[in-house]
Amino acid sequence: MSDEEFILEVSALTKRFGGIVAVAGVNIKVKKGEVVSIIGPNGAGKTTVFNMLTGIYDVDEGTIRFKGKEIQNENPLHIVDAGISRTFQNIRLFGDLRVIENVMVGAHTKTDYGFFDSVFRTPKFKKEEDDKVLQAVKLLRSIGLDHRRDDYAANLPYGEQRKLEIARAIATGAELLLLDEPAAGMNPQESADLMNFIRSLKERGYTVLMIEHDMSVVMNVSDRIYVIDHGRPIADGLPEDIANNQVVIDAYLGGVRNDAQC
């Protein structure tokens, strides 16, 4: 495969907090339109990888290439602009804003009018604002959240809050969506819905990189899987390969290692 096919290329990514190596030499490659999962036991460094991808943490070593450009250690704002958006492990919606307003905050950088346009309500303001409201409603309809449009985000049930957070990420105009444990805390019905939703994202051309613990979700929607343990990559490949990989099973179940027996 040539390099141009990858929308995201992470190589030898390393992050240290003092003496602790949180992430060591992680490589991830994601093709456009793929759904790729990162799995690993708690504390493996998955979210740290996300935080480096989005510019929240500085990268100590390694490179992150997005659409061919190096973006490691860039300002988070530039990374959003480049087309990466994320959700959070613990939902971080703007709870005292309405559902539609949350989506419109997502479209912030795409809303093209200045401070004075809004104060004087210029035609440009009205057109842009109408555009963004319309797009927000359409987005909410397409993901089945339109009936909640006027509700305050904090009043939504859990599953819908997750969905709204993804909708908000989509509204930034991102091509690559980073989903941090989207199925966390969901009941089986909700995670089944989520699976369909993620598949539909893929159909619409979005690239998804997600961290997930729910194996039924991971195995069903992922094109490929990366496994991290103690900050180190231990395996990667197709879902069926990962499911039968002894190293992975050991990492999750604490399998008996030969070197630990003495």
Partner: peptide, 30 residues
Amino acid sequence: FCLALVRSKTGRALMAIRTDELAATMMGIN
């Protein structure tokens, strides 16, 4: 002036910052 400000992307950005600065940053808000 305040009403116009609040009902615009500036107002939404300010309220987003009030709730969650990190999430606001991730929405591309400076």
